[in-house]
């Protein structure tokens, strides 16, 4: 008997929510017809800046579910200073991320020492076939266009200097 007021209060909560939804609208949106703008730091898809990648394999090794596939070969690049020896660099042949396996932990973005991987808030890349979720490096490069310039977390905060400049 002592529980009766709580029971009635609980019924009031759900009924109030019905009234709120009917009068003020739902908290959800009707997705294909109207879209929500995700926040700029949202983890939608991982973009690859190919020029920065050195095929160091750190991201592939740190990936918890092994969804990054990298192949590369050594090649000679022109010397930095005139008269120097040609440099030996890694040329990227293949950089694939299998989004069917990816769990969006972001470890690859964090560990990349050369700022080659970026989060993009883009999310509409579902496919009818699961094999098509394997994005190759050209596809990953296209996502770079959607990577936004972040605002700093606090106004006036020190901006972290990027070691390698973005083009």
């Amino acid at each position: 008997m002592a529980l009766v007021p709580g029971v009635i209060k609980g019924l009031g909560v759900t009924f109030g929510e019905i009234v709120k939804t009917v009068t003020k609208g739902a908290a959800t949106v009707q997705y294909p017809h109207e879209k929500e703008a995700p926040p700029p730091r949202a983890r939608g898809v991982i973009a690859l800046l190919e020029e920065n990648c050195t095929a160091c394999m750190l991201c592939a090794r740190e990936c918890p579910d092994w969804c990054i596939y990298i192949e590369g070969h050594k090649t000679l690049a022109p010397p930095r200073r005139a008269g120097g020896n040609p440099r030996s660099v890694n040329k990227l042949d293949r950089f694939d991320i299998d989004y069917a396996l990816c769990m969006y932990c972001g470890i690859c973005v964090d560990v990349c020492p050369f700022e080659a991987l970026f989060w993009s808030p883009e999310y509409e890349y579902s496919e009818p076939k699961i094999a098509d979720l394997l994005h190759d490096k050209s596809r990953l490069g296209q996502w770079m266009e959607t990577v936004p310039e972040f605002e700093s977390y606090e106004a006036g905060a020190e901006v972290k200097q990027k070691k390698v400049p973005r083009p």
Partner: peptide, 13 residues
């Protein structure tokens, strides 16, 4: 419908 409204969503549309 009613359960959707209780959870602040619209349900099947």
């Amino acid at each position: 419908k009613m359960v959707s409204f209780m959870q602040s969503r619209l349900g099947p549309m």
